[in-house]
Design a protein around this nucleic acid. Sequence first.
DNA 1: ATCCCGAGGG
DNA 2: CCCTCTGGAT
Length: 213
Amino acid sequence: MNANEILDQIEQIFPHAQCELHHQSSFQLLVAVVLSAQTTDASVNQVTPGLFAAYPTSKAMAQASVSEIESYIRRIGLYRNKARSIHDLSLVLEEEYGGQVPCSMKELMSLPGVGRKTANVVRSVAFDIPSFAVDTHVDRVSKRLGLAKPQDTVEKVEEKLKRKIDRNRWNQGHHDMIFFGRYLCTARNPHCDACPFVKICRKDKLEAYKQKK
DNA sequence: ATCCCGAGGG
DNA sequence: CCCTCTGGAT
């Protein structure tokens, strides 16, 4: 079973996999993705309504104080780093990009608090540019399904997925693997009884590798 | 390699 | 209680 066939199977189980972070603009998407680091999107969606009501645009966010932003997002993890990142990146958007979110990898990754994963998600969801963001779910699922090796870095996993999956399926495939990892192939207690990939699964090998390390 | 860091699930 | 959640900067 090749990578495209694996996606076919996942899409039978999850026909409507998509971005679940609530947002109404590319700026709001960027902020929501920064907030989503090491945090469930359900938690992010609890704080963004209040945050975006107070500061809907990069201009408003840049004019807010970091402590004011903190007060809206204190419920989620890493809130001090995130408040600082959101404020500072809004300032850069206003001063360097005329209030527009850039779409190149180089420009996105130069923003404070924005790394390769966040940049890939923004490019994929906001600009519909073929990308493959590798987060904790995509990394785990790729290694369990044998699309990458246990020792591969996230950059290596991204490279292998892009090579093995048709380009026109990258953006949807990302969300397919997120849903599969979030709702079926979970980190703890995966639902192997309902999984179509038990024959090819390398979960045990992945865990053995982690033990040695 | 370490730090950040609250909430929800098992 | 411990683990995990669409990571990034140092």
